[in-house]
Design a binder for these strands. Structure first.
Lengths: 221, 221
DNA sequence: GTACATACGATACGCCTAGTATCATATATC
DNA sequence: GATATATGATACTAGGCGTATCGTATGTAC
């Protein structure tokens, strides 16, 4: 699945609905160019913030004409988002053990790990850019955050169903309490969240998640 | 106290330490200009994102020469931050009732309310801009976030001391769990957090904060 | 008052970047 | 071969950031 934030002026291939994988007329889009543009954007983001990257720089590094870039993407943010979603968006799946709490802890640990990498910088950059780019913000929510939330929701609901979590646990609030601190830390703190941070968080939250009878032998830090 | 992110090239009035309120030689800085610049920046931010505001626009609206702006501030972000800290940074104090938990809840409710106003947009903008501006980020931490944290820390420690909160409550993690979800929501969600959001969060977190004996009659939503 | 130091306003300027436009050329379908 | 679309090269417009200059205003020191 390719998530492209297309140029608004770009007409859709066929009528506005239906996947219609039918071939279009004329020379087809060059897949190599597309991929090398995304890769160039990612490479440049590893050492630069987004405002420091110019479309020309991406074009040069990708060995592509700038016109080609703007034919397919409306702006820099769109490129970065597509690159992020397609090439680096964590395929950090949730583990599936007997303990939903443990699944959450392990997963968040991985998220924290990812935050410390170049991907963390990309995420920060994208969230930041979303503040001044409603289209990007909407795309990030639709293609990234809501997916994460759905995953987490499943784990939490499984925990509730199994009796591990309180029956009246507020799932949505729980998700916010899990991801919120990490994003908070990512955006505000100069040093990205790490495993210890996650463990402390989880140690605190488990009091609120677990059924009374399960709250004893707690470790997690 | 005026928090200015000064031009780095600007020499300090006297030797590099000591407040030295002594008058400098020459024409003194025009306080009216300074304030009208800050007010202009705030006014423009109410309807625009930061990238959409130009230094020229601020200068024009403030009735001031652009050169005057750059004499005192190194860039737009610095202006906005100073305006934010000096003129709108919530003097949202914490209430002080018998219940630390209730103090936290009421305070966060006020924070959420603030997030829904123009101030929320400024805060979003500043956090976003911090991602590409280390100096701004450091200033925000030093003059805003660490202050908020210190306030919250005091309340939590009071709650621990009074026996309302668990003795082993992890204060720093608790702060992250309180503010994290709000900032998370502020940055990701198109609609800013509100009182109901806070109440649900608090209802969840109180299970983790309160001593066992106090967890019964819970409402908060 | 005069000398000096600094701030302010107006304005022009250099530089960089985003995004557009044009046109020749390449590559697909019919 | 006709048609439709993509790419490359390049020039171009528009606008913003931040600097520089210079004349003028406003304070202190003597």
């Amino acid at each position: 699945m390719t998530v492209t934030l297309r140029r608004t002026s770009r007409p859709s291939p066929s009528s506005d609905q239906g996947e219609a994988p039918q071939r279009r007329l004329g020379r087809p889009r060059c897949e190599d160019s597309r991929r090398s543009i995304l890769k160039a954007a990612i490479a440049l983001l590893k050492t630069n913030d987004l405002p420091a990257i110019s479309a020309d720089a991406i074009a040069e590094r990708a060995g592509v004409s700038k016109a080609t870039i703007y034919r397919w993407w409306p702006n820099k943010s769109a490129i970065v988002m597509e690159a992020f979603l397609e090439m680096v968006a964590p395929h950090t799946r949730f583990p599936e053990t007997d303990s939903a709490m443990e699944d959450l802890r392990v997963h968040l640990g991985r998220v924290a790990e990812v935050c410390q990498s170049d991907i963390g910088r990309m995420l920060r950059t994208l969230i930041a850019d979303s503040q001044a780019n409603a289209e990007l913000a909407a795309a990030m929510r639709a293609h990234y955050f809501s997916v994460r939330r759905a995953d987490a929701r499943k784990v939490i609901e499984r925990g509730i169903a199994s009796g591990e979590f309180r029956g009246d646990l507020d799932t949505e609030a729980a998700i916010d309490c899990l991801y919120g601190p990490i994003v908070f830390r990512l955006m505000i703190n100069p040093v990205a969240p790490d495993a210890e941070f996650v463990n402390r968080m989880i140690a605190l939250l488990r009091q609120a998640f677990l059924k009374r009878s399960d709250r004893r032998n707690v470790t997690g830090r």
